[in-house]
Design a protein around this nucleic acid. Sequence first.
DNA 1: CAGAATCCCATTCGATACTG
DNA 2: CAGTATCGAATGGGATTCTG
Lengths: 231, 231
Amino acid sequence: MKLQKETKIAERLHGRWYNDACGTAFGLELLGERWALLIVRELMFGPRRFSDLRAGLPGISAKSLTERLDGLERAGVVERAQLAPPAAMRVYRLTALGEAAEPVIAALGRWAASAPGHDITLPLSAASLMMSLRTMFDARAAECASLVAAIEIGPDSFRLEVTDAGIAITRGEAVDAALRLTVAEAPVLAALIYGGVPAAELEQAGQLTIAGDRALIAILTGLFCLPDKFG
Amino acid sequence: MKLQKETKIAERLHGRWYNDACGTAFGLELLGERWALLIVRELMFGPRRFSDLRAGLPGISAKSLTERLDGLERAGVVERAQLAPPAAMRVYRLTALGEAAEPVIAALGRWAASAPGHDITLPLSAASLMMSLRTMFDARAAECASLVAAIEIGPDSFRLEVTDAGIAITRGEAVDAALRLTVAEAPVLAALIYGGVPAAELEQAGQLTIAGDRALIAILTGLFCLPDKFG
DNA sequence: CAGAATCCCATTCGATACTG
DNA sequence: CAGTATCGAATGGGATTCTG
């Protein structure tokens, strides 16, 4: 029977379910378990290895990560892949359905940024900082702006391009960048872009390296704005 | 252990379960617990009593609902209120922050509606059907449409107004409605609007009562469309 | 009747240790 | 590196019982 079979799909994802036809409830069955949405966030800029994911999710145990990847794979959100030799290693990547979840991550992040009590001093992964740039990008502030920047966060490289059409952030080297920012850890960039800490100060502290057109920094930092807080 | 103890204290203050500065992670600390987002959904159209919430969340236990309401209150998403006498009863309602979470619910619902395996034969509360109408409203299809409808689902009354500015759905009687649809259970309306079941068929089965301009039904059902599925 | 408190069991989580 | 195995602690949920 169709009903039985579909019910069992939800049941197979994990033991409990909501018994609710609402789309939001179904979404919670696919993405609502602990860590699941953050794993998707870490995969948003391309495939990652098991250990990359652990590094970006401070506190997750190997067991939980294994279980969650398993569940997300059964939900059709994540798939395993094998990189071509000689770098033959197993990676996890989003399916088309998984990539389509970006608006969910963005909506939740935007909402939470307006909630009181947010502790921005906690650890921050490169992927989550880059996702937040997509989310907090202010299209109005970018009407007259246009730039390509390279962002290097430890071993992770990103290319950031702003046009009047919007913002595009991809993983990889940006050879055409007019500005290149290099840091060891994502929170330094967060301090620059969201915290209003002057670039010169971070540079002098040896936390930030700047190459290219330094005047673009002011333009770049003006493109992102956190929402007003409630309460 | 020291780490465990610190985690627990932090959790009580505002949940630092994820140890992650990312806004999405913070959002999950506020709304990510089991049932939490569905409780917010049930409150989206106005204050509800404890037992209303239970009725709209099939399978939740009194204990879980109590705990979740407690957590949502501490998170600043929900607040308790007392209705004025003589109907003096305790109700729960969203704060401004809680109301601002509608885009999160909508994004998750829209995403999940495009995922395979969704069982739409499960129970459906009145609030979740009305939320889905907001979410699945197709502004392009409504460009030339304009109507006010009254929707009665058992004891719950809603007013639905479509203009070229969008759709507005509120709880309460719609005295100015040109169309009035009355059903005992939400799934009947879902069958009409999303399932393509003809109104006459539901009417003949005694599941649907129609008053007012019957021609508006075709217009109304044309305003909502489910997204294409992946996979 | 609304909803808080208690008990109990099943599940889940995280830390550590271990394996191919 | 990519997971398993295991164990103790925490959490979740159902049933039942109280309190006003």
